[in-house]
Design a protein around this nucleic acid. Sequence first.
DNA 1: ACAACATATACCGATATCGGCATGTGTCAA
DNA 2: TTGACACATGCCGATATCGGTATATGTTGT
Lengths: 125, 125
Amino acid sequence: MPISVYVVRMARAATTSDVFNAIAEPQRRDILVLLRSGEWPVTEVARELGMSQPGASKHLRVLRDVGLVRDRQVGRRRLYGLEADGLRPVHEWTGGFEEFWNGAFDRLEAYAQELEAGHDEEEQR
Amino acid sequence: MPISVYVVRMARAATTSDVFNAIAEPQRRDILVLLRSGEWPVTEVARELGMSQPGASKHLRVLRDVGLVRDRQVGRRRLYGLEADGLRPVHEWTGGFEEFWNGAFDRLEAYAQELEAGHDEEEQR
DNA sequence: ACAACATATACCGATATCGGCATGTGTCAA
DNA sequence: TTGACACATGCCGATATCGGTATATGTTGT
């Protein structure tokens, strides 16, 4: 009996099931910003942001899958609301670079290069 | 004389020439983190992060196009260094949601829903 | 000018993405 | 139960993305 082994070659390491990827799409960022004002039904989101209803639905689906929004049924409508916790990792990750855009570090770097210029052409790392 | 008009239908609104999209790729985030330790030549980046040389080159190209890294020629090698300013907009954008992951706002929201429960089924915006 | 090293680019295949359109599913009200 | 409204999903075409392999470009030292 032959045993078949299927090897899946992925074209992209990260799928949309990732917060960084979810917010890479401008329209999805717009939705998140809109949702800061409260809960919105799908159709209203679509109208407000000038997209089709299926379009809004799909983007909201992605946002829900990564936990950036929650939904609850109210009447015949489904209200979507912000679940901003998921943005925290992104904020913190970028925050890890804060020192590099502060002037303090730039001055340090400039000083280091100045020192380096005084030496031979040197190897770093 | 006929005039031909070509209409380009884009499949994706945002291309890679956007910081949010650039950091959506895990390997590129790894590169940025690595570059916090200083400037690195392409081959070393590839070795350190376990990717091929062309792979590293391509990712660095994307990062350079969006201004997240800079490069300078040193000997026969090209050193890539961090240009963290580009991450600031991302940090600030996510920061705009900070109040929503702070307990303070959650309590406010809970309070609002409590009030709402006392009313009729009402419309919110 | 040439070999060796370092990096960039071109091309390819597999897959993912996005928008549009059509259609399915669910919920209410009469 | 049926019709109207609200939303989700399926399918499609155009394009983008990513990794791999091969090859082009550039740089140094001889």
